[in-house]
């Protein structure tokens, strides 16, 4: 799990660097500070489980096996991008790793994760589906529709709220009727209120493991609120100035990476091994970045491909 967190951190830093060099256009939303949730849940899943994420989805894509070079190439609008440039940062999808998409309309994918979970059960597999989403998503209708359907149909699905205390710029507490935006809604759907330290990968892993076991054994969905903090702004355009300095400092002190490294060392891990994990992640990111930057731009011929199942965009005969 340390490796997973380091890989994500280094990847996101590189994405930010490329943005500062004006190579990444459009928008992108980084998970720096939130890596422990992605790493902890990913470690609890099987390769055949389904994962759905939001526009803040680089971490989840990478941890489901999406090659970093293809993800960066997608951010850079290259032909070798994960979706040949048609999706961009907010729509990363890696079906080969059952990473069934990143969704940029808040809340919608919770309903879609239900469908994957329903299908798994219908087909007689014990796969589970996981939907990651932000605290802001708990106030949209789709969240409530999805929770109610999952609970009534007892679907094998995990709803993981990455509560980073803010929607875009507004503190979630100022726009939500309850203190814990996800957990305090759980009882409305007959679910247990689960809150976990989202900056502690081990804690997240334990909670996810239990939720996965519950889902696989047919007992239904779980709603998990993992409390965390993003180190940067909401998106690349946001310096995050609306957050009090003390708050930011307090959370930087709780950075999941050094914390995890210290824990490993305290439990007897060899520092050289940890150093090597970091060096390998660093090399992986550098190589991916070089490959992505060297790749040709998305081919305009892609424009009218893959609208329909015949591979094209023909709407008439």
């Amino acid at each position: 799990m340390y490796r997973a967190q380091v890989r994500v951190r280094y990847f996101e830093k590189k994405a930010y660097d490329l943005f500062l060099q004006n190579l990444v256009k459009g928008t992108s939303h980084l998970a720096i500070g939130q890596e422990a949730i992605a790493a902890g849940v990913a470690a609890a899943l099987r390769p055949d489980d389904y994962v759905f994420a939001t526009y803040r989805g680089h971490a989840h894509a990478i941890l489901r096996g999406a090659p970093m070079a293809a993800v960066l190439a997608e951010l850079l609008g290259r032909q070798s991008g994960l979706m040949a440039g048609k999706g961009g940062s907010m729509h990363l999808t890696y079906a080969a790793g059952n990473f069934l998409g990143s969704y940029a309309i808040v809340g919608a994918h919770l309903t879609i994760a239900n469908g994957a979970a329903w299908s798994a059960r219908y087909r007689g597999t014990d796969q589970v589906a996981v939907a990651f989403f932000g605290d802001g998503a708990t106030n949209i209708g789709a969240f409530h529709e999805a929770l109610n359907l999952a609970a009534t149909w007892k679907l094998p699905v995990l709803f993981i709220c990455e509560n980073n205390l803010y929607m875009e710029y507004t503190p979630i507490a100022t726009v939500t009727a309850v203190a814990r935006p996800a957990a305090d809604r759980a009882s409305a759907y007959g679910l247990a209120p689960i809150v976990v330290d989202g900056n502690d990968a081990d804690a997240v892993y334990e909670v996810a493991l239990a939720a996965v076991a519950r889902a696989r054994s047919g007992e239904g969905p779980s709603l998990v609120e993992a409390v965390t903090y993003r180190h940067g702004g909401h998106s690349r355009a946001d310096p995050g100035k609306y957050r009090p300095d003390e708050e930011v400092a307090e959370w930087l002190a709780k950075d999941p990476l050094p914390r995890y490294r210290e824990r490993l060392l305290a439990s007897g891990a060899n520092p050289a091994v940890l150093d090597r994990i970091e060096a390998e992640a660093h090399d992986e990111v550098e190589q991916a970045s070089l490959a992505a930057q060297g790749a040709p731009l998305a081919d305009p011929a892609e424009l009218e491909r893959q609208v329909f199942a015949d591979g094209g965009a023909t709407w008439r005969r």
């Binding site: 389904y50 069934l100 919608a108 994918h109 919770l110 309903t111 879609i112 994760a113 239900n114 469908g115 994957a116 979970a117 329903w118 299908s119 798994a120 219908y122 087909r123 589906a129 209708g141 789709a142 529709e145 999805a146 109610n148 359907l149």
Partner: peptide, 17 residues
């Protein structure tokens, strides 16, 4: 729950139904 209905149909369609 019209969103949940169509979302469930979509997720199921993406995964073999």
């Amino acid at each position: 729950s019209e969103q949940a209905i169509l979302g469930a149909a979509m997720g199921a369609a993406m995964t073999g139904l």
